[in-house]
Measured scan of single mutants.
Amino acid sequence: GSKLPPGWEKRMSRSSGRVYYFNHITNASQWERPSG
């Protein structure tokens, strides 16, 4: 298991139950796992 880039964390969408990734530094969110 590799770590996520700085700022990123795994989140669960309440509406759909899907996992997404959220960056608390930039407030960005995306479905794809961030690389870096």
Rank of each mutant, 00 (worst) to 15 (best):
residue 6 P to Q: 08
residue 31 W to S: 08
residue 36 G to D: 14
residue 25 I to W: 08
residue 11 R to T: 02
residue 23 N to M: 01
residue 35 S to A: 11
residue 5 P to H: 03
residue 25 I to V: 10
residue 3 K to N: 13
residue 5 P to R: 02
residue 15 S to E: 11
residue 10 K to C: 14
residue 30 Q to V: 03
residue 22 F to R: 02
residue 4 L to Y: 04
residue 6 P to H: 10
residue 30 Q to G: 03
residue 5 P to G: 05
residue 28 A to W: 08
residue 22 F to L: 03
residue 19 V to S: 08
residue 15 S to K: 14
residue 25 I to Q: 09
residue 11 R to A: 05
residue 33 R to W: 13
residue 13 S to L: 12
residue 29 S to Y: 14
residue 2 S to W: 09
residue 24 H to K: 12
residue 4 L to T: 02
residue 12 M to V: 15
residue 20 Y to N: 01
residue 36 G to M: 14
residue 36 G to L: 12
residue 34 P to L: 01
residue 11 R to V: 06
residue 5 P to A: 05
residue 17 G to W: 01
residue 14 R to Y: 08
residue 12 M to I: 15
residue 26 T to F: 05
residue 5 P to S: 03
residue 18 R to Y: 07
residue 30 Q to Y: 05
residue 21 Y to M: 00
residue 10 K to N: 02
residue 33 R to T: 09
residue 5 P to F: 02
residue 31 W to I: 08
residue 6 P to W: 11
residue 29 S to A: 14
residue 6 P to T: 08
residue 10 K to P: 09
residue 2 S to H: 13
residue 16 S to N: 10
residue 23 N to S: 04
residue 21 Y to P: 04
residue 14 R to T: 13
residue 7 G to I: 02
residue 9 E to V: 12
residue 24 H to T: 15
residue 19 V to A: 08
residue 9 E to T: 10
residue 26 T to M: 05
residue 29 S to K: 12
residue 4 L to P: 15
residue 34 P to R: 00
residue 32 E to W: 09
residue 6 P to S: 07
residue 24 H to E: 09
residue 22 F to T: 03
residue 26 T to N: 05
residue 14 R to Q: 11
residue 30 Q to K: 02
residue 11 R to S: 03
residue 19 V to N: 05
residue 15 S to L: 09
residue 25 I to L: 10
residue 4 L to W: 03
residue 19 V to G: 03
residue 6 P to M: 09
residue 12 M to K: 11
residue 20 Y to I: 04
residue 36 G to S: 12
residue 7 G to T: 02
residue 20 Y to R: 02
residue 27 N to Q: 12
residue 28 A to E: 15
residue 31 W to F: 10
residue 20 Y to D: 05
residue 27 N to S: 09
residue 2 S to L: 11
residue 7 G to M: 05
residue 29 S to T: 14
residue 25 I to D: 09
residue 31 W to Y: 11
residue 9 E to L: 06
residue 30 Q to F: 04
residue 18 R to N: 07
residue 25 I to F: 11
residue 21 Y to L: 00
residue 27 N to A: 08
residue 7 G to R: 02
residue 19 V to K: 03
residue 4 L to C: 09
residue 27 N to F: 08
residue 31 W to E: 07
residue 10 K to H: 05
residue 2 S to E: 15
residue 7 G to Y: 06
residue 33 R to S: 06
residue 3 K to T: 14
residue 7 G to W: 05
residue 3 K to D: 15
residue 35 S to R: 07
residue 32 E to H: 10
residue 23 N to L: 02
residue 12 M to D: 05
residue 2 S to Y: 13
residue 34 P to K: 00
residue 20 Y to F: 08
residue 10 K to Q: 14
residue 27 N to M: 12
residue 21 Y to T: 00
residue 34 P to V: 01
residue 4 L to F: 03
residue 20 Y to W: 06
residue 26 T to A: 03
residue 17 G to L: 06
residue 1 G to H: 11
residue 13 S to K: 04
residue 36 G to E: 14
residue 13 S to E: 14
residue 6 P to A: 10
residue 27 N to G: 15
residue 4 L to V: 04
residue 16 S to R: 06
residue 11 R to Q: 03
residue 14 R to L: 10
residue 27 N to P: 00
residue 17 G to A: 05
residue 10 K to D: 01
residue 26 T to I: 04
residue 17 G to S: 06
residue 16 S to V: 07
residue 11 R to K: 10
residue 15 S to R: 14
residue 31 W to P: 05
residue 34 P to H: 00
residue 10 K to S: 09
residue 5 P to Y: 02
residue 18 R to I: 09
residue 21 Y to I: 00
residue 21 Y to V: 00
residue 8 W to M: 00
residue 28 A to H: 14
residue 17 G to E: 06
residue 21 Y to Q: 00
residue 1 G to I: 11
residue 21 Y to N: 00
residue 28 A to R: 13
residue 34 P to A: 02
residue 5 P to V: 02
residue 19 V to M: 08
